[in-house]
Design a protein around this nucleic acid. Structure first.
Lengths: 158, 158
DNA sequence: TCATAAAACGTATAATTATACTTAAAAAAC
DNA sequence: GTTTTTTAAGTATAATTATACGTTTTATGA
């Protein structure tokens, strides 16, 4: 068998990368001109498997793109927690000041941002200190509790 | 007059950012629960205008995402103003927290400082977050209006 | 003001994409 | 080698999204 699924996938990637495909029928016709006979349903599955996405296009509405040409900016949280570098917390009004080991503040702040705690409006990290802007009306004790709930490794640290 | 379309766009951005919208009817219902009455056709237009995209999702096939959460790795000429990297604003007391794309906070803060808004006492920039200390007694809504007046590209974003 | 142009948007429907169901082929297990 | 399981893929159709068209609203200009 000449035209296997993976051959077709490779061809699809090339065609999409060339950047002129606006719908699955166009892709189907282009594939046929290269000797791949297939159907729209199969292409729908192929595009899903290849994680091809449609992005807005000035003239034609949307255009297909390899999602690798796009890179998620959302941080990933895994492995051992940078939260373990935290040393103390202090409060002033609706601000919390979080102390970490030197150089760890940015990565701790990234984790805090990533989990999206509703109690936190935003964070700003220096080298070993993070400024946390709290939601209005939130008590210091409630925030401390919420933090420990979310990050048990902070118990006895803050 | 309340700018309905602009309000709706801002609401859509928030809802999509929360990350649980899989099709336009779900978005329609969520908007309705927030008091926005609209139709699927209008949402289709809105999503195009806001450059919202659908990306593959493990369980449900595809999910809507703000395209800013994806960053093209290809060199591209975007708009000139760093303000266009801004994604949201939130308030707590006399502080405003401004979220930008990663790494853009310093340049956005520079612009804010450069224009010398009398409403702003000072700014502190991290990587993707700016802390803005507001003049005492300034309401959140007045500041939001002042910002959009000064930077029209922020409309529908904050 | 009034007239006119432009923008917003709903309805109905077209266009596009996803999927339930089925069949066939390939792989794995026996 | 036969049976069972898994994978691939076509057909038909469901689900979803985009848009032509008409109407209303809002902005613009005289």
């Amino acid at each position: 068998m000449m035209n296997t699924k993976s051959d077709r996938h490779r061809a699809i990637r090339q065609i999409i990368a060339a950047g002129q495909i606006f719908n699955q029928n166009e892709l189907k016709e282009t594939l046929e001109s290269q000797g791949f006979a297939t159907t729209q349903a199969t292409l729908s599955r192929d595009l899903m498997a290849l994680k091809v996405i449609k992005v807005p296009h000035a003239e034609k509405g949307y255009i297909y793109t390899l999602s690798e040409n796009y890179q998620s900016t959302a941080p990933q949280v895994e492995g051992s927690s940078p939260l373990q570098t935290c040393r103390s917390i202090a409060f002033s009004g609706n601000l919390a000041v979080f102390k970490c080991l030197p150089s760890f503040a940015p990565s701790v702040a990234l984790v805090l941002d990533a989990v999206g705690m509703p109690e936190i409006i935003g964070t700003i990290a220096g080298d070993d200190t993070i400024l946390i802007i709290l939601k209005e009306g939130l008590s210091h004790e409630r925030f401390r509790t919420a933090l420990v709930d979310r990050f048990p490794e902070l118990r006895d640290r803050i």
